[in-house]
Simulated assay, not measured.
Amino acid sequence: MTGLPRYGSGMLPLGLSMLWESVEPEAALKERFGFDDFAAVCGWVTKALDATWAITVTACPRMVISDQNAIFWAQSDRGDLVVKWSRARQRFSSLDASTRLLRSLAGRGIPVAAPLATSDGLDRVVLDGPSGELSVTVLPELSGEWLDVTDRAAVLSAGAALAELHRALGADTRTSAAEPVQGAAELARTIDDWLTNGDHRLAPEASRRLRGLLSEAPELDDVPQLVHNDFRAANILTRNSKVVGVLDLDEARVEHRVHDLAKASVYLGTRFTAWRPTSDAVRQALRVGYESVRPFSTAEARWFEILVVWQGLRAIPGEHDPAGWASAV
């Protein structure tokens, strides 16, 4: 995550909190990162930014923990900043790649937070934390409000922004994905295997429809490329119904663009612990916005329907489904 809405981080408490997990943040801070309390984190960040970025921290308003990662807000002589770090060593290489990608996208005019370089010109560095190495980057805080999916103009803008993002990502030849590229034939086999072995039949009519659509799927005339892979309300900032920030490229991967849009259509309204399905009207608006910049081919339109149904089925949490994911497919 490259930042959260300014004081729209007002939706987050001051001090230390968890982004989505139901655990005590103080215990998670100590167990995962080795800091005794929030004051200790503020001291560590203040010293790290001074020594490595030549940035003077003046205040530490808040921090959130998400799994093995942390996001820390700092006020400084360089403005309001977001300091991100991870202790997941297996992800250090991909985090380096996603941070470089942010700088590339910013250079192409995409509204992302370009990293602030260290005094040595690096966008991300590994620093010693109290209980191990941390991969750290510093970003300017973006100002805006999380996407409101009841605002049709904002949803149209989000669709257009995703298409522009795909265009920019397609021009970037680097990849942060370790997995092999999955073509249309492999994708069809993956869905068929899921229907056979992974589908819990919680929306049987939708499952039957998906199998029928898949049996008539055309060749997909699209080359897989880097996509966002987590484009939803929690990662989209707006102002006056226009997208002004796209957050969290850390999950970027190589995939078909229509698959990325289908996934976004299903999960667009989700934020942290608030997971609710996206209405048909909102999905349609997102697609209209997307196609205002990049129209679908005939094959992509067919695959979009397939992938929306598949992602919708996969989103059903189980028989206990108070949000109504099954009925939304």
Rank of each mutant, 00 (worst) to 15 (best):
A160C: 09
E205M: 07
L162W: 06
T173C: 00
A161Y: 03
L169G: 07
D199A: 04
T150V: 12
I191P: 02
A168R: 02
A161V: 12
L169Q: 02
I191L: 03
A163Q: 07
A185Y: 03
V181I: 15
A188S: 14
R167Q: 14
L142Y: 03
G198R: 02
R208I: 12
A161M: 08
A206D: 05
A203D: 08
E186F: 05
T150H: 10
R152H: 02
T173A: 11
E145Y: 06
D199S: 00
E186V: 14
R174L: 08
A171Y: 03
S157T: 14
R201D: 13
S157N: 10
A206L: 07
A160T: 15
L195C: 09
L147R: 05
P204K: 07
A177I: 09
R189V: 12
G183T: 13
A178D: 07
A161R: 07
S157R: 11
E205D: 14
R208L: 12
R189T: 11
L187P: 06
T196Q: 09
V149K: 02
A177Y: 02
E186G: 11
G144K: 08
A185H: 10
T173D: 01
E164A: 13
L187I: 12
L187D: 03
R174K: 10
D172E: 10
A160E: 15
D172K: 00
A206Y: 06
D193W: 13
R208E: 08
L142Q: 08
R201H: 13
G170C: 00
A153M: 07
V181W: 02
E205H: 10
L147M: 01
T196W: 00
S176E: 06
A178R: 06
R152M: 02
W194E: 02
E164Y: 15
D192T: 00
D172P: 00
